[in-house]
């Protein structure tokens, strides 16, 4: 789990570094970033309500603030916002948001606003990368930092799968089907990307996804 959290954190650091160092966000999907902000905000509504550990609270805070930062850069920054590929980043996110919401309203553990929003965030996260993957496919010669970002972001849920197996074997009564199935789907969505990423990495070439 720690490795999963760290790859998640590193993915965000890599993305912020890329944007800040190159003053460019080309190849980065604003739609995916906005979906992630929505995911974090709806999942971490309990930030001020329930306290698990300093580590958890800090990470939640970092995830919300950093995705807000990335969106701010892409939308408002004088130089960076010019480099955003708006014409290419055309995924219709309503097709991800509404089904996730409806599914969360139907399949959840408890019928309460907080619980439905939390479940919504789990469902939405599993598909939030799709606009980014579509954009990558449209971009020829993806830069290394962007492909590293997607790789780290994909690895994070994959590492969580191992964590869930471990917890399931060692903790009595540890079951969370909604999270497990969504996490499996989330990781599966990356499979194709992982394949081309590792292939280009082995050959020491820039990543370019077949269209």
């Amino acid at each position: 789990r720690e490795a999963g959290d760290m790859t998640h954190l590193f993915s965000i650091i890599v993305l912020l570094l890329k944007i800040n160092a190159t003053k460019s966000c080309s190849g980065v999907s604003l739609k995916t970033q906005e979906l992630y902000l929505l995911v974090f905000v709806t999942r971490y509504l309990d930030l001020f309500q329930s306290y698990i550990s300093l580590y958890n609270s800090c990470m939640k805070f970092i995830f919300i603030v950093s995705s807000g930062c990335i969106i701010g850069y892409m939308r408002k920054h004088k130089v960076v916002s010019q480099t955003y590929d708006a014409e290419q980043d055309t995924f219709r996110v309503a097709f991800l948001v509404w089904p996730s919401f409806l599914l969360a309203a139907v399949i959840n553990q408890k019928l309460s606003v907080m619980e439905i929003l939390w479940t919504f965030s789990i469902y939405l996260e599993s598909v939030a990368i799709l606009p980014q993957l579509v954009l990558l496919q449209r971009t020829k010669n993806v830069d290394n930092l962007t492909s590293n970002y997607v790789f780290l972001l994909g690895s994070y849920r994959g590492l969580y799968l191992l964590n869930w197996i471990y917890r399931c074997l060692t903790e009595e009564g540890y079951r969370q089907w909604i999270v497990w199935i969504s996490g499996l789907l989330q990781t599966a969505i990356y499979c194709d990307f992982f394949y081309y990423y590792l292939k280009s990495w082995r050959k020491n070439e820039r990543l370019s996804l077949p269209s």
């Binding site: 550990s53 939640k60 995830f63 969580y160 079951r175």
Partner: peptide, 10 residues
């Protein structure tokens, strides 16, 4: 079935 009540993962 039982689920961990505390959402202790991120």
């Amino acid at each position: 079935d039982a689920r961990v009540e505390d959402k202790d993962e991120l």
